[in-house]
Amino acid sequence: MKKIFNIQNALSILYFMGGLALMGGIWELISSLTKNEIPSPKDTWVVFKEVMQNPMQNDPDYKGIGVKLLSSLQRVAIGFGTGSLIAIPIGMLMGSSKIVMNIINPMVQILRPVSPLAWFPLGLAIFQDSPQASIFMIFICSLWPTLINTAFGVSHIPQDHKNVSKAFGFSNWKYITKIVIPYTLPHILTGLRLSIGVAWMVIVAGEMLSGGMGLGYFVWEEGFNGGSIAKIIVAIIIIGIVGLLLDRIFMYLQKKFSFAV
């Protein structure tokens, strides 16, 4: 068993390396076709190392990439955190009451497809402050997946579990903590995983709009306005890797809290 597992592991690493090599080759090709307008992987690597120097330097005139990353993450954490704290209880109410569902669901259906960027000016008007506006945007777009998944989970609690609660006279508190939450947790985590993905996508756009901070600003100001496509590519890679890590954290939690029936 263990041996097979190892071979599979080695194989998947091999495929991964192969994929990277393929991508590097295509990149190299595009770079030479555009006469280095798109920088080659090697040139980008040089810029990458440059960007990575003193990542935590935090002077008024120069903020390292790590500081920018942390400031983006912080805004995501605040927006996503407050959004989730509101989405989970409302989702539970929607899932447990048809009436609440019928009241809230139409609103959700209308607001959910709205591009997160459309909320930015509204946030700006409300808060008169662009960092807060981008947090507001994250907050709004973090709501929907968690809300919908939580409501779905709660409304699908099996009759068997409800019967246990009824038969043994569980208090509301016991019902919520011993049945609703454990049963719904995997659904909630699915919602949170989708939300954090959206939030991470949106924060970059938000910071481009608001300016002055975070990875989005880095892409726009130092990359595009600074005329360095290499920096844009470096930023894209960093954003991608951080997004992947965030996703993996929630995937791990999902696995940890799913139960065998």
Binding site: D160, H161, N163, V164, K166, A167, F168, G169, F170, K174, K178, I179, P182, Y183, F259, A260, V261
Partner: peptide
């Protein structure tokens, strides 16, 4: 409605899958 004067063994057991054997009984 159900009451603690009537104890039930359900046909399909109806145990809560996230609670241990001990906890399943203790919570009831």
């Amino acid at each position: 409605k159900p009451g603690p004067d009537r104890g039930i063994v359900f046909q399909n057991y109806s145990l809560l899958p996230w609670l241990t054997v001990y906890r399943n009984i203790y919570e009831a």
